[in-house]
Amino acid sequence: MTTTRTLTYGETIRRIGRAPEDSQRDYRRLIDVLGRPSRIAAIDTVDGVPPVIILAAGLADVDVTVAVLDEDWERPFFVATGATRTDITRAQHIIATQPLTVDQLTSLERGDALHPERGARVFAAVTGFGDAVDGADSTTLILSGPGNDGEARLSVDGLAPEFFDALAIANADFPAGIDLVLVAPDGRIAAIPRSSRISIEKPEKGA
């Protein structure tokens, strides 16, 4: 996903920073989907800034370490939020505008049983949530655990099944683990807390 900036640098930084009312609203939607992992909600979008950047910016400041995996958005993000910049293996928040590789995912901090709060929180851009008619590039997850009334399904476009296999492995040592927030270009969001048990639904043969 290419990021084209048509805004001035200053304007970009201004737009990344959310007004308090907006980040409060974003946050309520975020805890709604984190508390119910198969649910999809939506945050208000801002012209010229990817929603994944917006959502992550609302939670970032000098007290949190962040890694932004995007050359174009890295500097504006840190200027706008004042967040503490660090590398991917130590960051508390990771922002990925491109799909994280399995290697990157396994390198993230997971915390440990004494310090689950150290586990990383990933804000990952996805292309959609089961939008393509033919299901191309889409992985359907079967989720169970807290927040799911029984078993629930969530389809994610733009992240390979291997990614979710790796996520399941990373979270196998609960309460250590990684929490995943998914953000589509139109502002829809979903989230998979490390407490969710994930399995991948095998695609049916034939269209």
């Binding site: 308090p20 980040s23 409060q24 946050y27 975020l30 805890i31 984190l34 508390g35 609302g58 939670l59 970032a60 400041d61 000098v62 007290d63 949190v64 508390q92 689950p116 709060e117 586990g119 929180r121 807290p146 609960f174 309460p175 683990g177 929490d179 807390p193 490390r194 407490s195």
Partner: peptide
């Protein structure tokens, strides 16, 4: 202030992800 709110919000995200774990917060 907003800084304090974000600190609570971040801690609460961890609390939701690990139900029942007492997350330390500032």
């Amino acid at each position: 202030d907003e800084l304090s709110k974000r600190a609570v919000r971040r801690a609460l995200l961890t609390a939701i992800a690990v139900p029942g774990y007492q997350v330390p917060f500032s």
